[in-house]
């Protein structure tokens, strides 16, 4: 596979990833390598304010390339604890390191925990394999 899909996190069919940080009891959210590749060079990201609450499926951030704009939907309902401010200055981190320095927000899940339907790395790999087939 051309795109990296780390095993240590979960995925949505909208190409977001979600990783549970047990220590902090938060969920870190970002976009996948596949998503950033399809989007091309990211030039701007509109980030939410920390402290804000966000609902499952609601737009969490807006990511722009030169010729496209996509919403990043929140895969979880909760309170935004932190956002990755570094992306404002360096949106290219979303391209260079989507699973690391390109993280978008840390969300403290509400109680009861509401999340999108989450896929394993294998499940997500199957999804994009199917998507690529359709294109041919």
């Amino acid at each position: 596979m051309k795109w990296s899909i780390p095993e240590d996190r979960q995925y949505t069919d909208e190409h977001e990833w979600l990783q549970v940080d047990e220590k902090e009891d938060t969920r870190i959210v970002g976009i996948t390598d596949y998503a950033q590749d399809k989007l091309g060079d990211v030039v701007f990201i509109e980030l939410p304010a920390s402290g804000q609450t966000v609902s499952l499926g609601q737009s969490l951030a807006v990511v722009e390339s030169v010729k496209a704009v996509v919403d990043v939907y929140s895969p979880v309902t909760g309170e935004i604890l932190r956002v990755n401010q570094e992306l404002t200055e360096k949106p290219e981190l979303l391209n260079e390191d989507p699973y690391g320095k390109g993280w978008i927000a840390a969300i403290k899940a509400g109680d009861p925990i509401q999340t999108a339907k989450l896929l394993t790395a294998q499940g997500y790999a199957n999804l994009i394999t199917d998507l690529e087939k359709e294109e041919i």
Binding site: V43, F44, E64, S65, V66, K67, A68, V69
Partner: peptide, 12 residues
């Protein structure tokens, strides 16, 4: 900054 414009952002 063309993502502001109609041909890309359309209804937004």
């Amino acid at each position: 900054l063309q993502t502001r414009e109609q041909h890309i952002r359309r209804e937004r």
